[in-house]
Design a protein around this nucleic acid. Structure first.
Lengths: 334, 334
DNA sequence: TTGAAAGCGCTAACAT
DNA sequence: ATGTTAGCGCTTTCAA
């Protein structure tokens, strides 16, 4: 399969490739209307499509932003990507996507690939607090702009867009306590995600504020997904740990927990209340009794996009951290 | 920001760029172990990353497959993408993604972009039966391999991977009838999606088999998303159309319908049974009473990937249509 | 208004 | 084992 090139067009018309290039790029100044039309017609006839590889190589610019996310199964990251894509397209950038599947090695490979393809900026939600620190720093030092979003890293002086996980966590737990819950179990996320650590702090401090005891066995590592939530509940029941509320790290683990509780015949929310900090309204949609603090995914995407574009176009400007107000949703128990 | 090139390395070492290129590409035959090591060390020291743009241009090959999907919000397409990516990577191909947002113009732009970037094959689930027919044909004629999946087009002689929507639809409706449902409403998808048309046929024929009347007002255009399902139910209730079962086109419209029914105090599934053909277990997860025929997304992704690779590497081979057996799931009403 | 020529970073055929 | 050279498709000075 052979693509038509500007040389083919030039030859077919008996003119130089420079003129063809100019016409095709829409340069109205330096090519007569007549030849312009002949060129456009011939290009169409020959099925010409400009080779972006060659253009990018020549121009030494791709106008492409790479986005790395831990996963794309929950709507949160997909929404982020969609909004970011919109905003970045509006600003004249293209987007290429990569998922790390929660695996630092895959994340590394993706970042490497972005470098190889000369993306001009990177938006990333990291999958591990430490594992790829050196790589992030290497990329920064190389001068490739990066912006962290959602799962950020406090240890790195890079622009970030996030919510205040500590505060939101504190808030949610406080709500549960005010509603009379006393034995609140935290289905926590893994420690290698910083948001998880901050939510643990929020959980702990909220208990403290109300002089409730902090029991280590009430904090269970439930991972990030559906089955993590199921297993955590399984464990709780097996160990006969009494509880009247669950505060989950992700919406998926909340759903998993819910599902398993129902399987065991536990009434929700009469006996147990469930809450999580959610990227979308999935939880609410699925089960209105789950209380959620909703992350402002659209704003997050737009802020992150604006930040990365700014950084690409004005590398000299200082880094910025944006903390977004998450919307708190209260649902009446049904 | 200036990237290190093989010329930089060659100069730093006082050798030719060909040797550097060879060493960096892992050619052990034609470069002495000693210089090889010097080159690798220097490359690392200077932070070299190969410019894939240049490589692709020079080699006239990108080893990249483009995937176009209507949306990425439902897990079905995301699962497809993930599995396809795995399989294609295994075969030495990269993947680039685009979503049409159910918009034929966006789909067109995405296909155009894929051409510009010289993808070597395209996997697509179309968003409209007719709108972009000419483009698909143009691409085919140009010799760019394409494989259709899930939402395919019977009118085009291109390789496809799909389920038998007619059969599965027939089957599902038959089940409802056998369970005593008589007034089955079909929240149908739009006619510009072929799968939707075939499911309508299946619905109709199943009724006929059991000598049940076909009422046009029982077939409602509910679109593809959550709000479509909500609105369809709203309309049913407002018009006082009696029904005891809903057969929905998508899992999202099933969820929307369910949500609105609950809002109006209708018991599910005591009064109304809901069924859909689902790409994932989302429905089941959300509401175990929803009956679903599960699409074999993993196989679909793997077959489609294999087909496209085969077509890229052996363009002379004939087109193929693969119809996958969808797994039928019965859930007991809870 | 047009053309000639250089070059983006890399590979590969052909010398040496 | 290494170097020289041509060229992938395009843009962009510089000349004409």
């Amino acid at each position: 399969m052979k693509y038509t090139t500007i040389i083919d067009i030039a030859q077919a018309l008996g003119i130089s490739k420079s003129t063809v290039s100019r016409a095709l790029r829409g340069d109205k100044q330096n090519v007569s209307k007549e030849t312009r039309e002949r060129i456009l017609a011939m290009a169409k006839k020959m099925g010409y499509t400009r080779n972006e590889l060659a253009v990018n190589l020549r121009k030494q610019s791709t106008r492409t932003i790479g986005i790395v996310v831990p996963e794309m199964l929950t709507p949160f990251y997909m929404n982020f990507i969609t909004y970011a894509q919109q905003e970045l397209n509006r600003q004249g950038y293209r987007v290429t996507l990569a998922q790390s599947h929660e695996n630092p090695n895959a994340e590394l490979a993706n970042l490497q690939m972005f470098e190889d393809y000369r993306v001009e900026g990177i938006l990333i939600s990291v999958c591990h607090t430490e594992k790829n620190l050196a790589t992030y720093q290497r990329i920064m030092k190389k001068g490739i702009p990066m912006v962290f979003f959602d799962r950020t890293l406090s240890s790195l002086p890079i622009s970030k867009v996030k919510i205040d996980d500590y505060l939101k966590s504190f808030f949610l737990v406080e709500q549960m306590i005010r509603r009379g819950k006393r034995r609140i179990v935290h289905l926590a996320g893994p420690d290698y995600i910083q948001n998880s650590q901050e939510r643990k702090r929020g959980y702990r401090d909220a208990l403290e504020k109300f002089h409730l005891p902090y029991c280590p066995e009430y904090v269970i590592d439930a991972g990030v997904d559906f089955s993590g939530g199921e297993q955590a509940v399984e464990q709780l029941l097996k160990q006969h740990i009494a509880f009247d509320a669950l505060f989950c790290f992700t919406e998926m683990s909340a759903l998993g927990a819910k599902s398993n509780l129902q399987k065991h015949g536990v009434q929700i929310p009469d006996e147990v209340a469930i809450a999580c900090i959610s990227g979308t309204d999935l939880c609410v949609l699925v089960h209105p009794s789950i209380t959620a603090v909703e992350q402002p995914v659209k704003q997050m995407a737009e802020e992150a996009s604006r930040l990365i574009v700014q950084k690409v176009e004005h590398p000299e400007l200082p880094d910025k951290t944006i903390i977004l107000e998450a919307e708190t949703i209260y649902r009446e128990s049904t």
